[in-house]
Design a protein around this nucleic acid. Structure first.
Lengths: 221, 221
DNA sequence: CGCATGGTTCGATGTTAATCGAAGCGTCGC
DNA sequence: GCGACGCTTCGATTAACATCGAACCATGCG
C-alpha cells in the first residue's frame, strides 16, 4: 500500500454532520462565534467546542479570540473550493458550481455580516491598503482618519467596543479581502446614511445610486 | 439547524484510509478490479468488497462487471475534481493543483493502463465516434475494421479474451474519453510496432516521431 | 463434472468518536 | 468583587463502523 496524500484526514473533518453544517454556515466568509455555530449545527456548546478545536487544528478554520468571544472563519479560499467540490454531489445542491454569487448585483455590492462586500468592498480595501489608510497591524493611520472624515467618520464616534477596528474579510466572489471590523460596519452605515446606497429588502444586495457610486469613487480618489 | 447540501455523506465516503487509497489509485481514470484495489489499499478482499459497495452506492465509483471480474472506476470528472480539492490540504501533495498532467509531453500522449491517452488518444476516440467506427454499444463496425486495417489490425488477430473490445476511458488531462479496452491496447501495440511512436523509459510518456504523428493523422483522415 | 478463482455475505470483535452533564476558567458589566 | 456569560475540559455513555474469519455464490477452465 503506497502512501499518497492524506485526503482521508481532511475528509474526516468534513464527514461529521455537525461539522459540515458549521462549515457550510461559514461559506460566505463571515466569522461566527462558537455559540452561534453550535446553535446552527443543533448541538450543545461543549460538543461544538470539541468540533471547532479539531477544525482549527486541521487548518480548516482559523480562530480569532476577541474578549470572551471566539470568532471562527474558513481559513482560506481553498477550503471554500473544497466544500464546493463536495456540494456538487448533493442533488439538492443549491448553488451547483458557482465560485461566488452569480447575481451581478450581488457581485457588485452586498452585505457581508454587517459590512460591505463585493466589488465595491474590495475596491475600498484595495485603496485603503494602497494609500496607507492602515498600517501593518490594520490600525487606522492619521492619514486614514483624514480620508474617513470625507464621509463623516471620526474617531470620536467610535462606540466603546472590544471589536477590532479593521479586519480583512475574504470575499468569495472576488477571492480577495474586503474591509470588515468595526470601521467596516461604520463605513457601510455612513454610505447608507448619506443615501449613496440602500439595502434591498430581504436580500443581501446593496444597491448604489448612480450619484452615490460616483461620489464613492471620488471619495476613494 | 437548517438543512444544506449533505456534504458530510460524501465526505464520509472519502474519510476512510482504505477507501481514499482506492480512490487515489483510480485518479488516472483507469478501471481496476476489486482484488487489485484491495491489495493497493492493504486490506482483505472481504473488507474491500464492503468499501467498494458503499462507494458505488454513493455514486462515487461506477461498476462494470466483466465475467468474474468487476471493474471499478471513478464515476466522472467531478469525483476527480473533488479529490484534487482535498489533496490541496496535504502538505506533501505531489500534484498540488493541476487538473491533469502539466508536462506537455504527458498531455500530448501517454500510457493509460495499456492504451493511449492524452490529446492523441482523445483525437482517436473522437474520430472513431464521428466516423462510425463504433456503434452505440461500442462494438466495432465493418467500417471500423476497414479503418483499423489501415494500421494492420484485423479481427482474426484478436486473442481469445473476455476483455471488452472497446471502452471509453476518462482522460483527466482532457476531461474527455479516449479509447480503452482490448482494441485500445492493440492500437497502441500497432503504433509502437510501426515505430510511429515509442515509450519513454520509466515514464508514461508516449513520444511520437514527426513522421509517425503525420501518418497517425493521415490514418484518421 | 470437478476444481480453482474472483467476489460477496454474515457474524463477531475491537476501536473510534460523537454526544452531553458537570465542573472549571477567563472575560465582561455593574 | 460578584454574578452572568462564553467557552473549554473531563468523564462516561452510546452508536457507528472497519476489520477479518468462515462460509457461500458465480464464473471460467480442463
Amino acid at each position: 500500500m503506497r502512501e499518497g496524500p492524506d485526503i482521508a484526514r481532511i475528509a474526516a473533518l468534513v464527514a461529521d454532520p455537525a461539522r459540515s453544517a458549521m462549515l457550510l454556515a461559514l461559506m460566505d466568509g463571515r466569522a461566527l462565534t462558537a455559540s452561534e455555530l453550535a446553535q446552527l449545527a443543533g448541538i450543545t456548546p461543549q460538543t461544538a467546542s470539541s468540533h471547532l478545536a479539531r477544525l482549527v487544528d486541521g487548518d480548516v478554520l482559523s480562530l480569532e479570540a476577541q474578549g470572551r468571544h471566539r470568532y471562527f472563519r474558513l481559513s482560506g479560499p481553498h477550503v471554500a473550493a473544497m466544500l464546493e467540490a463536495l456540494m456538487v454531489f448533493s442533488s439538492d445542491a443549491a448553488p451547483p458550481l458557482r465560485t461566488g454569487p452569480n447575481d451581478p448585483a450581488l457581485r457588485k455590492a452586498r452585505i457581508c455580516y454587517d459590512h460591505l462586500a463585493g466589488e465595491m468592498g474590495v475596491a475600498l480595501y484595495d485603496r485603503m491598503q494602497a494609500d496607507d489608510w492602515l498600517d501593518r497591524d490594520l490600525a487606522v493611520t492619521d492619514q486614514g482618519w483624514d480620508r474617513l472624515a470625507g464621509i463623516g467618520l471620526a474617531p470620536a464616534q467610535l462606540p466603546r467596543s472590544n471589536r477590532p477596528l479593521c479586519r480583512a474579510c475574504l470575499d468569495w466572489s472576488m477571492r480577495r479581502p474586503h474591509l470588515a471590523g468595526l470601521v467596516g460596519k461604520l463605513v457601510l452605515d455612513r454610505l447608507l446614511a448619506l443615501s449613496w446606497a440602500r439595502r434591498m429588502p430581504s436580500s443581501r444586495v446593496v444597491l448604489f445610486t448612480p450619484e452615490g457610486e460616483r461620489r464613492f469613487h471620488d471619495w476613494l480618489c
